[in-house]
Simulated assay, not measured.
Amino acid sequence: MHTADLLVVKIGGSLFSDKRLDRHLDPAAVRRYARIAAALHRAAPGRVVLVSGGGAYGHGAVRGLDPSEPFAALALTGANAELRWAWTVALREAGVAAFPVQFAAAAVLGPEGDARLSGEAVARLLAAGVLPVLSGDCLPDRSGRLHVVGSDLVPGALAALAPGATRIVMLTDVDGVMDGETVIPRLTPDGADAGLRALWEAPRWDTTGGMAGKLTAALEHSRKGAECVILHGARIGADPTFLLAPFEEWPRGVPRTVVAAQPPVSKTAG
């Protein structure tokens, strides 16, 4: 099979919880997407990482933070630990070895505030054939103040794990970046104005900026060489392994927005 060197699957919180609530979870949806991640892991062991959106857990933990309190974001670590464990249990029930990784234990903030992997924890899990499960977290700067790093930003740090092509699949509850009723098929870091203009304002309960935050993160990942795909999670059928394949091999009728600086991943040896 032709694949990217690394596939990061980010499952948006809206697909498995009601983000307007605190700690709401749809167990059936978690099991469905866990089966999808498990199938991808079996198809490309050692090349797949799962990143969970915060959903009601993450958004609930960071709403109304006191900016004068350096440790205010600490609640996010506890909330998302519960969420990662729910995914880990569902993945093990789906038949794969999965391990929840706290992002703050595997990454640090760079001098410009960007998250960077530190150490070999995630790479070692992949090498052992284990599916890592990550989420957003809060990371300390050099002064000890905690900064929220949302789940849309986590894949950018993970791209450092792959020596070649990284594909970041962002599953959400819409078909991609929409311009009215039309999906914008492709955006590049230097040509994203149309996509950004088309975005709507995120609701107040969404602490990550909705699609605008997702697209901004995807554009940043693409500047670093990753290929990002934004698509509706409901479009994933019984066989999700097409997510590993070149786009010309994808099933028809799967709309998406590709965000990449270079042409999409094609016939890369897998």
Rank of each mutant, 00 (worst) to 15 (best):
V130Q: 10
E220P: 11
L215C: 11
H232G: 12
A104F: 10
R186E: 08
A72P: 12
R31D: 01
L231I: 07
C138F: 05
P163K: 13
G144N: 01
H41S: 08
P163C: 03
K224D: 08
F103I: 05
L219W: 02
V51T: 14
E220F: 12
A218Q: 10
I230V: 08
I36P: 12
S135D: 00
G233A: 04
M178A: 08
A202S: 13
G195T: 00
A97R: 15
R31H: 09
R63W: 04
R186A: 08
D175Q: 14
G209A: 11
A34C: 07
D141G: 10
W85S: 14
L171Y: 13
T208P: 04
P140E: 09
G225H: 13
P189E: 00
R32A: 03
R84W: 09
G53S: 10
A165G: 04
A28N: 05
H232Y: 08
E120G: 11
A123K: 06
D5F: 11
F247H: 09
L158K: 06
G129D: 07
A97V: 13
L40C: 09
I36D: 07
V183E: 08
A73T: 10
A56V: 09
A159G: 12
V259I: 05
G110P: 12
W200A: 12
I184A: 07
R23T: 00
H147R: 08
F16D: 07
P45N: 05
A44F: 12
A38R: 07
S266A: 11
D206P: 07
D137R: 00
F242W: 13
K214G: 05
G58P: 08
A38E: 01
R197A: 03
A218L: 13
V183K: 09
L146V: 10
M211C: 10
V108M: 02
A157Y: 03
H221C: 14
P100D: 04
N80D: 11
D152Y: 10
